[in-house]
Design a protein around this nucleic acid. Structure first.
Lengths: 159, 159
DNA sequence: CATTCTTTGACTAATATTGACTATTATTAT
DNA sequence: ATAATAATAGTCAATATTAGTCAAAGAATG
């Protein structure tokens, strides 16, 4: 890679365009079709750009609304400094997560002062066996993994 | 949550208009056609706004009267204590819970000082669409209901 | 070549807007 | 009083306006 090379593809251009705006603003609210029109691509390409380049790992959260006056909002979030614990926990969780392992994770979070007592309680309630039980143990473990990862990702930043 | 900027659609504007009045008053009594005229929409759109944004889950009670001198009255609801808030929210959740309704509930919890910002964030992460998506929308709504109820029940003890 | 990334578009989903028709209540005429 | 009319609000389904998903085709990369 050299210096200052022209980004070749349109997705990169769109990414750069949005990030330039985000350099001066905490968030942007766009109309999907407008941006698509600006770069002369199909609207769904905007979703592609967002899904590949504005993830939470990159420090962005995205929300949207359909219907009249619909929009996509991209928000820059401030990633916390002591994220290592969270990252390694996320990395360690695979496809599935047992009840036992999930409790260990919650305990670790608490021990590291990443969550308080009430938050422990809320998280345990969210992954409670009865809440996510669908008569299929594999499915329950998958759900537990998904929910836990989602929560850990939330803990990575503050608004 | 909160800081609203440039709502694009008219329903949002009407919602904000009414809520601004309600910020200073316990209730408002409106004439449907008047509000409709103010925003230049058909009268039934006022019903749409009320049905989607002034539900009991949102913390409002609405009553109305037809005929000459008819009106719609929107009243802020006062729940007696925290347990009542939780109980009525739990009662309002049936078998399934949409994303939209779940967000309303979380907002209500926050407005009633039952949870703080971080807890809002954690709960929303737990019921995030991607976390509980199993390629079946009904199932997702069922899971969301289960998880939300589980959390609400936990909050009853965790004061 | 094989693999991964990008581009495209047909189909789906969510939300908002509109208006025709209905229901209820108040007022006026008989 | 009763009936007719006017003045409201409610319901519901059609249409409009967005954004999302997914898989296939094409391009780039190694």
């Amino acid at each position: 890679m050299g210096d200052e090379m022209a980004d070749e593809n349109i997705s990169d251009l769109i990414e750069r365009y949005l990030k330039e705006i985000l350099a001066d603003n905490e968030q942007i609210k766009i109309r999907r079709s407008e941006i698509a029109g600006l770069f002369d691509v199909v609207p769904s390409q905007i979703n592609y750009v967002i899904n590949t380049r504005f993830t939470i790992q990159n420090g962005y959260i995205v929300e949207s609304k359909r219907g009249g006056g619909g929009y996509i909002r991209i928000e820059k979030v401030h990633l916390l400094d002591d994220i290592d614990v969270l990252d390694s926990l996320i990395a360690a969780i695979g496809n599935k997560l047992s009840k036992r392992d999930s409790e260990t994770i919650v305990q670790t979070l608490y021990n590291n002062d990443l969550i308080d007592r009430r938050e422990v309680s809320i998280i345990l309630a969210a992954i409670d066996k009865d809440a996510i039980d669908l008569n299929n143990n594999d499915l329950t473990d998958i759900l537990r993994a998904n929910i836990m990862i989602s929560i850990l990702n939330r803990l990575r930043y503050e608004r």
